[in-house]
Amino acid sequence: MWRQYLKILKTGIPTESVRKILRDPEVERLGAEIKRKIDKRFAGSLSIREVDAGSCNGCELEIHALNNVYYDLERFGVHFVASPRHADILLVTGPVSRHMEEALRRTYEATPDPKWVIACGDCAVCGGEFGSSYASLGAVENVLPVDVKIPGCPPTPAQLLAGLLKTLDRI
């Protein structure tokens, strides 16, 4: 047990300031403002439901990274939830495969109002490498109203963080 505590002490807190992650003073200003907004309007907690509607799983890897110790998304009061019924925001990845079309619609319907939709990654933004076909509907906006788009293949955690902060700025 002492080894574990020693390792925890040695590791310290590697979480990085938004300034270091984004190297963009504008976004850091957003960071502070948004924290205030979330505290005020969402009682300190904003919930995101991630929906893979057909992605290659690259976007999921980078979304996971947002929760690692460096990015620590929860410090802004933002966290990923297990059910759309608990969500304020749907973060949708992938071109929408036709086999996921109805599941995505139902997830959207299960999300209480007010709600926002973020299209995450090139496929969700414009269809990406897969585009539209017999199997794919392409961009998320072909199925749901989209509020914010975060391009990238996949978007890096820094780009995801900037995109999320900008979304929150609009809310």
Partner: peptide
């Protein structure tokens, strides 16, 4: 569910 028609 995530069939995207890659082969086609």
């Amino acid at each position: 569910y995530v069939h995207k028609g890659i082969e086609k």
